[in-house]
């Protein structure tokens, strides 16, 4: 009885270990592909992408990637996290060296389906970030900015704009540090 159970457990663990070994690479590749896609989505095309770098700014750690063209940084892709309505909201924000937002994309969120989750699908909401940042404040209209929040999802929209403005401030700080 015990022997049978032990055998079954051992056998199953062995099967799992094998499948784990086989799928480990495709899983990594899928994650990598998703990451590269999200980066290329928010950066101007062309340019050579650096490996991931990490720096601290304003008490928060940022992962970022630099896209280099003609020997100079052409744009930065910054992973920026804030807290939305349902949990952490992580964005990839593409920022040009002068602090202009090129584009944004959602890496992960746990917002309410049909409400806050629209931040990942609503084209009207997602398009309005482009070109912001150099001198304009990035805030939703309720807080005195220019961003139209998603209907009935102010908290999500605020979290989104905070993530974007954090990323912009971060890029401005590293550009400044490089100039000095």
């Amino acid at each position: 009885m015990v022997l049978c159970l032990t055998l079954v457990c051992l056998f199953c663990s062995a099967v799992l270990a094998v499948v784990y070994a086989i799928t480990a690479d495709p899983i990594k590749a899928a994650e990598q592909k998703a990451l590269v896609e999200s980066i290329s989505q928010v950066l101007p095309s062309g340019g050579e992408l650096s490996d991931v770098a990490t720096a601290e700014f304003g008490g928060q750690k940022f992962d970022y990637y630099i896209s280099t063209a003609n020997g100079a940084p052409a744009a930065y892709a910054v992973k920026s996290s804030t807290i939305g309505f349902g949990g952490p909201l992580t964005l990839m924000v593409g920022v040009l060296p002068d602090g202009t937002v090129y584009n944004t994309s959602v890496l992960s969120h746990s917002e309410t389906p049909g409400l806050g989750a629209k931040c990942n699908t609503d084209a009207k909401f997602m398009d309005q970030w482009k070109g912001l940042g150099a001198d304009k404040v990035i805030k939703v209209t309720k807080d005195g900015g220019d961003i139209d929040a998603i209907t009935a999802s102010t908290i999500t929209s605020r979290a989104y704009s905070l993530a974007v403005s954090n990323a912009v401030a971060f890029v401005k700080s590293i550009v400044k540090a490089e100039e000095d």
Binding site: M1, C4, V15, T23, A29
Partner: peptide
């Protein structure tokens, strides 16, 4: 499988396939 342990054995078998499914989905339909 002896009658006394059939439920645990079934659960282990099912759990194994579920984990296999998890790996496959992570790899190909993330």
């Amino acid at each position: 499988v002896p009658d006394k342990v059939h439920i645990p054995v079934y659960i282990v078998v099912i759990a194994t396939f579920v984990t296999v499914l998890q790996f496959i989905m992570q790899a190909y339909t993330p």
